[in-house]
Design a protein around this nucleic acid. Structure first.
Lengths: 361, 361
DNA sequence: TTGAAAGCGCTAACAC
DNA sequence: GTGTTAGCGCTTTCAA
């Protein structure tokens, strides 16, 4: 009778096996099963073998919720992105997820859609599910986010700029390098009139990209009329609008750099529609190097910022705080960028170096 | 002393508030707090008000894991897709997620990447997290999946074809309608030589699309040499390869339909590279109507299969089984398709109706 | 209508 | 090295 303490008499059908079933089957205590599963070294080899055998025979696997409840560890990481339909993000998600899953974490994706209410709803969801850390890949600091998460001391990682906090790290993208390469590539081809279509400037990241561009221009002694610095919004449509704006100007640039690839693809679209050839009439450079960049017409010259790098660094940054014992202060994770030359860049119009001019140069 | 049953003396800092804190603050029992939160009608109005006030003041929210553990309901739905970097899927995810979140579900995304091991790993993850239902949007039945999930009686929804099981429903896409519209649109323009690039034919969905095409062709008395039915794989690169194959043939079709938009975009790319104009030299039709379709050059005429429809139907199909008491048998959810005409389709070459021929027609 | 208490499946002291 | 047991935070009988 004493053994029948549990109310449940029979395993109701469709009820998942629990640790007790395994213990019974292997003729050990549930503690031993638990220890075996968690690979506590002190377990006797033979017992462990028996337990694993039972686990296999019964096809048992532990209940994550129960584990999370008692251990205080959900093994869930939050991944906050701006917008899943922007191709940049799926590529990032893919990388982050695969590393997370390899390490037995699950990820919860939240799309902030650039607006505060949906961002708050995302945070609430993450909090309710007890995420152990959050990667904020929205390319901007999200104010309210901070308070809610940081006050709970949840590890976070941001891109470009992070609030100072002990368990917060930063992925520091080296925009300078790649964008400078882009500018110098254009300059080397002979371009002097280079426009830049920015992203949404509320995002720190977009300011940085623009600044990197302006700086690179200055470095080589070029000036930029401000009409050549229109704002896009990192969407294809935004790129189209910005390029249309440029086309209405009296003086046209011979090259256009863009704050991201979707913008550049919009630019390509408008140019094609306007009957301008790329790169013969105008050169275009993007930023990100999304998969699609290689397949537009012409294949896009662009600055690569690796999603794999970003994903890996984000995960590692979180892991150090989530799993580590070290109380290290805020960490900086550098992310390089580099120009990928394809076919959307060429000599400026009217300077096509024929054999003659080539020898001249 | 009796009240000090709990070991924990002081709330450790950074410890989340629990239901006891709220109960203490509102001076009621935890049962009342629980009932209030779960909107059990029997709770006294005044008490409930007091509880809600405490909840607000303390900024309390319940622990999802604990809830899940005791209630047996995780409020998590699985969403299985083929590949997150195919733009079709993010658009689908977005729809599914927003409906799910509205209804207080969380989603767990699994990318099967077209291979069995990673599919199995996905299923394991879903099972471990106790998903309440799974939307299998991989456009193919996944054998092993079935057994693991179905044997646990977990509600599922498939596209096109589902294993017969009481808690499984099917989203039945009406390929016929949209694809017939596409074929007839081409025929009406005067095309008689229409090729079709299939998707990966292991997928039932791709067979159905091809069959719908063949059937539509037959309907209007057209024949198809089998060289005009090359296989793509629903990627841009696959579309390029298939189109290159076609271009090597002695006799070229005047129009190409594709099993999905990414394929069509690849086709466009190859044609542009080959110096063929679309639609003057050859017409192209896609399938899906992804966002990008509108922005390629030229804007793609394509058959729309709404991701929003798909997402909504998938969610509702699951919800009925997850929440419902009804033991309805397998359900069918029809999903319509419809042609969207843009600019990648036109008259076949050599038939450009000048004024003369137009009057003749 | 409310509260006390059992227990969801598991981990981690603690005892042996 | 192994087993016993006290909870993790919550929902849900069962009594009152």
């Amino acid at each position: 009778m004493a053994t029948k303490k549990r109310t449940r008499q029979q395993k109701p059908e469709n009820k998942r096996l629990d640790i007790r079933d395994v213990a019974r089957h292997a003729k050990v205590s549930i503690a031993t099963v638990s220890r075996t599963i968690n690979r506590v070294p002190s377990v006797d080899k033979d017992l462990a073998k028996r337990v694993w055998k039972s686990i296999a025979e019964l096809n048992y696997f532990p209940n994550t919720q129960a584990r999370a409840l008692v251990s205080g560890r959900s093994r869930i990481l939050g991944l906050l992105i701006s917008e899943i339909t922007n191709p940049f993000f799926p590529e990032l998600i893919q990388g982050f997820e695969s590393i997370a899953v390899e390490n037995n974490y699950e990820i919860l994706i939240g799309s902030t859609n650039y607006d505060v209410p949906s961002m708050e709803s995302c945070i609430r969801r993450l909090l309710e599910r007890n995420v152990e850390g959050v990667a904020v890949m929205t390319f901007g600091i999200e104010g309210p986010l901070l308070n809610e998460l940081a006050s709970r001391n949840i590890p976070m990682v941001f891109v470009d700029e992070a609030p100072p906090s002990p368990r917060v790290s930063t992925l520091l993208v080296d925009y300078r390098q790649g964008i400078r390469e882009g500018v110098q590539h254009l300059a080397a081809l002979g371009h002097r009139k280079i426009a830049f279509i920015t992203g949404p400037l509320q995002q720190r990241s977009c300011q940085l990209r623009r600044d990197a561009f302006l700086h690179s221009l200055e470095e080589i002694g070029l000036k930029l009329p401000k009409e050549w610095l229109p704002a896009g919004d990192h969407t294809l449509e935004g790129g189209m609008r910005a390029m249309e704006e440029i086309l209405r100007l009296k003086e046209l640039p011979t090259a256009v750099m863009c704050s991201n690839d979707m913008t550049a693809i919009g630019v390509l679209r408008v140019l094609a529609r306007a009957g301008l050839r790329v790169p013969e009439d105008i050169s275009v450079i993007g930023f990100d190097d999304i998969h699609l960049a290689e397949f537009v017409n012409p294949p896009l010259t662009t600055v690569r910022m690796s999603r794999a790098d970003l994903a890996r660094a984000a995960f590692e940054a979180l892991r150090i705080h989530v799993e580590g014992t070290e109380k290290t202060a805020k960490q900086i994770w550098p992310i390089p960028t580099r120009l990928t030359v394809r076919q959307s860049t060429g000599f400026p119009p009217g300077t096509m170096p024929k054999l003659a001019s080539r020898t001249k140069a």
